[in-house]
Design a binder for these strands. Sequence first.
DNA 1: GTGCCTGCAAAACGTTTGCACTGGC
DNA 2: GCCAGTGCAAACGTTTTGCAGGCAC
Lengths: 158, 158
Amino acid sequence: MAHDRLHERLNAYLAKKGLRHTSQRKVIADAFFGGPNHISIEELLARVRKEDARVGYATVYRTLKLFTECGLAAERNFGSGPSRYELSDESTDHHHDHLICLECGGITEFHDPAVEKAQEAIARRYGFRVRSHKHEMYGVCQACQQADEAPRARPRRS
Amino acid sequence: MAHDRLHERLNAYLAKKGLRHTSQRKVIADAFFGGPNHISIEELLARVRKEDARVGYATVYRTLKLFTECGLAAERNFGSGPSRYELSDESTDHHHDHLICLECGGITEFHDPAVEKAQEAIARRYGFRVRSHKHEMYGVCQACQQADEAPRARPRRS
DNA sequence: GTGCCTGCAAAACGTTTGCACTGGC
DNA sequence: GCCAGTGCAAACGTTTTGCAGGCAC
């Protein structure tokens, strides 16, 4: 399983900090590692409760905070609504940014070395030491554009 | 006055939509156009109340929403805390993004054509129609880096 | 006079925490 | 047994809205 590496990493962190392996943490980790990326606390809780109906919101909240601390997860805020969590760049060995569709809410990940390079140049110009960055484009995805053009699927003027 | 153009634009929008010119809208517009960029509702309210102490929070909130609708203002969320408002790219004829210092909270604006170009290329690659974007780098500004090295005189903001 | 606008207060919303009980070690 | 972890509910900070009265037109 590809999740083994993530579980190991979590276990190592728990051990290092003297924290406990609880059944809730295990269930939440399974649900998070196996679930869709950019999941909200609420959505994750629903997945978790299929395994153990007694888990509370606060536990999921605190556990994702823990995952964030140990570098497994990253918190994202796309426009309004609740925060969403994804596997961190560090845990996927793959940095990415986001395209967010304003019509369907879909999130596409992208990576572009040219942007990264340009970013470094800007930081250098301002003597700024970058710790993290956020690069999000909001607009309409290809699928929604096509749906908008098809006269049957949707009225032209909304 | 450089603000005349902004006031005109607001008036045109009010006229077009059949909305009313009220004293509150005038005072809030003055305070917003003349105040610092990246201002919060709370801070703007304080400025407004110097002119008219009876203005309420909700009015400032609703008025900034109006400014955002008519393209004069843009809402920004930098990390935690309340939303901040700035003059929109459209109203300044000058697109910019942000460097946010995690130590002093200072916000620096920057513009880089290389990033914009790279962005367009990505959008094209995904067939995505971009409506707006957000490009923020979080880190440590030059002043804070120097203050950290010589911890005698650190300029603390916020 | 009409109905948009305002100010207040309260609701809504998402996040965070205090507390008593539970359970891992 | 100790103390971190949990579940509940309530607190929190911010945003949004319902409503009665006020004011631009």
